[in-house]
Design a protein around this nucleic acid. Structure first.
Lengths: 243, 243
DNA sequence: TCAATAGTGTCTTTTAGACATTATATG
DNA sequence: CATATAATGTCTAAAAGACACTATTGA
């Protein structure tokens, strides 16, 4: 509902008695692909009691700020990532009363996807981690309830690759179909048949649009690949189902 | 992020200067099926300035209350709907600074699905509306930004019917496949072939499980239908794609 | 009997997957 | 030339869709 002590609420004032104003924060799970692997951005909180722990970049929401703006600011301030064109979508809001021992904080989690960035994030206290590494928490301790948010983010990305054109958010334009295929392979963790993948992508209306550019082959040769740009499709019909 | 002025934030205290504590509310879009039509529950705010307007049932979040609990309470207090078994999932969080003229309110919107309830909701100021009626806003004015939330809720339901077993949340157990098919037809707004629908449902692993019960035919006869219960599948493989 | 609803069978079209073949580059 | 990568072709299996047919009820 929309009003502090909303209109409908106002009718039954008794029920507003124990209402609190929570702190509202935004946490961002930024995924990207490097070296053919799906990576997650984490930052190192520098409070002494959390030394050795990692967390999603997050910020409290300011008065005049939209939630999306807070997400962008968290990335910029904590990891020096300024990607105004990055895909950003809400993941879920985590608001269990006990999720933070220090008080009631409602956190709006975001999923962000970007093409492989440079390495500015390896400055100060930000790093990209292999999602497999994060998943099994091998020596990697995630602060707060971020160990619940991270799997949700990864599963969201895996799932949306199936029925939306989201995979194109991981590659810079223009891109080759091999690059796009490697996105699917990295996110899903399975190899795909290049021939069938190509046929599926180009036959899905408005998924990608062909350009007349060619990408130069790699150092060991090979036929130059056509370059494509994002199409205007948001949802894929039919879907690209996981094998 | 998880802490009021979270740990990472603490490192850059300057950025917490303009941080606010927002009011946090929960709004619920409850969908159900009546008379073969998809219906949305709306309540009438009784503040004088919103006379004639309708809104999603919503409540502010209490100190000790989870977001899910707030959603249940909103339904119970504003529409006398107590459905602890109802499907409830987060839809999205709406937090634009300007979404409410009276102050900053961040609202966590929920999608709720229930089997056709009785008519307790037709008490005081709650009613079920045809979603088609709400969609074109024919004489129906939605308060706040609820005209943005409602289409999101409907599209979420339509979409999740495709790749999850969510349709079973609309029917009481045990149910016939004709009842389940009417769910799809009502939510998607298209007729489905009964024969192909049946084959699809029973061949999707763990979507439904057969019982040995039979449903009595309607007043005009017909072969008795087998009754089914929900299977343990959450996601459908393969999906039930919209025609 | 007929009308109505449940359920099965069958055929065609579409789509997915495996995998061979051709095309164009580097060394 | 061999090798590597891109792109196309072909065959098979699975799934979707149209629709005829059988089964079991009430009137």
């Amino acid at each position: 509902m929309s009003v502090p002590g909303s209109t409908a609420t106002a009718a039954v004032r008794t029920s507003t008695a124990r209402v609190s104003t929570c702190a509202v924060a935004v946490d961002v799970a930024l995924l990207t692909i490097r070296d053919g692997e799906l990576k997650l951005l984490l930052v190192q909180p520098d409070s002494p009691e959390l030394a050795g722990w990692w967390a999603l970049p997050g910020r409290r929401v300011r008065d005049d700020e939209s939630l999306d703006d807070t997400a962008h600011r968290a990335l910029a301030e904590l990891a020096e990532i300024n990607a105004p064109g990055a895909h950003l979508e809400q993941l879920r809001t985590y608001g269990d009363p006990s999720r933070d021992p220090r008080g009631r904080v409602v956190s709006v989690a975001y999923l962000a996807l970007t093409p492989t960035p440079g390495d500015p994030a390896d400055h100060h206290r930000a790093r990209f981690f292999d999602v497999a590494e994060v998943g099994i928490a091998r020596g990697l301790r995630l602060a707060y309830d971020h160990d619940r948010i991270v799997p949700d983010a990864i599963e969201r990305a895996r799932s949306k690759l199936e029925y939306t054109a989201l995979a194109t958010a991981f590659v810079k334009e223009p891109f080759t179909l091999a690059q796009l295929r490697r996105v699917y392979e990295a996110v899903w963790g399975v190899p795909l048949d290049p021939a069938n993948f190509r046929r599926k992508v180009v036959s899905t209306p408005n998924f990608v649009v062909e350009t007349d550019e060619l990408a130069p082959p790699g150092p060991e040769g090979g036929r130059p690949a056509k370059r494509y740009r994002r199409g205007r499709a948001i949802r894929l019909h039919p879907a690209m189902l996981r094998p």
